[in-house]
């Protein structure tokens, strides 16, 4: 036998090293995930309300909030109708016939003081705008609403709805009194007492749940 000859004893297989490695890998994964959760920026989801905005969930009564939510949901249907019908906006009768709340003539509409809706098409060139104005004919627990649809088309066919906007619409709310605004620019609406109603922000939700 040469000097480098060697007898190797074959040891029985043991899982110890594998187990230790697996346990370590598990700990590393859990620690990394925990670090990400603990160190994540917590206020990203929260956008503070601006002076002309109100939080629908905390500053509206139950009836007004219900109407706001109907409007908020239906705004996407209105936008979809517009896209699917050669850029034509649905008028109030169309929305009523399609039973789209809050335009549908139903018990909820009666309970909210028989809301009357007015539709205005304000399309101009490549700016597509439509306004749905609603106010109660009778005594109502709700104020008045404006659903303001707006988006732009560029000459090359691109579609966008404005800087800092996350939706192709906004909803304005006037708690007391009603007068048709002269125009629908932000400035005019704000000076006439209208406030942009926004849904809960992430921060508000945390507060509401008592976790912050």
């Amino acid at each position: 036998m040469s000097a480098s000859a060697q007898t190797v004893i074959v040891r029985p297989r043991r899982n110890r090293d594998e187990l230790i490695f697996l346990a370590l890998a598990t700990v590393v994964i859990i620690a990394t995930a925990a670090a990400f959760i603990l160190l994540r920026p917590k206020d990203d989801a929260a956008t503070p309300l601006r002076s002309y905005q109100i939080s629908a969930f905390s500053q509206m009564n139950r009836d007004a909030l219900g109407l706001f939510m109907d409007l908020y949901t239906s705004a996407y249907d209105v936008e979809m109708y517009h896209r699917n019908n050669s850029e034509a906006w649905p008028d109030v009768a169309t929305l009523e016939n399609n039973l789209v709340p809050p335009f549908a003539v139903d018990e909820a509409r009666a309970n909210r003081g028989k809301f009357v809706w007015t539709f205005l098409n304000l399309d101009k060139d490549n700016v597509h705008r439509a306004v749905y104005i609603g106010h109660a004919e009778e005594s109502s627990p709700c104020g008045s609403f404006i659903l303001f649809m707006e988006h732009y088309h560029t000459p090359d066919g691109a579609y966008f709805f404005g800087i800092n906007r996350k939706t192709p619409f906004n909803i304005w709310y006037l708690e007391k009194g009603f007068a048709l605004p002269k125009d629908f620019s932000e400035g005019t609406l704000i000076s006439a007492g209208w406030r942009e109603a926004v849904p809960f922000k992430g921060n508000d939700e945390l507060k509401r749940l008592g976790r912050k």
């Binding site: 040469s2 480098s4 000859a5 060697q6 007898t7 190797v8 004893i9 074959v10 029985p12």
Partner: peptide, 10 residues
Amino acid sequence: SGRVAIHWPD
């Protein structure tokens, strides 16, 4: 269990 030995010459 038992002994398994490999005698390598180099």
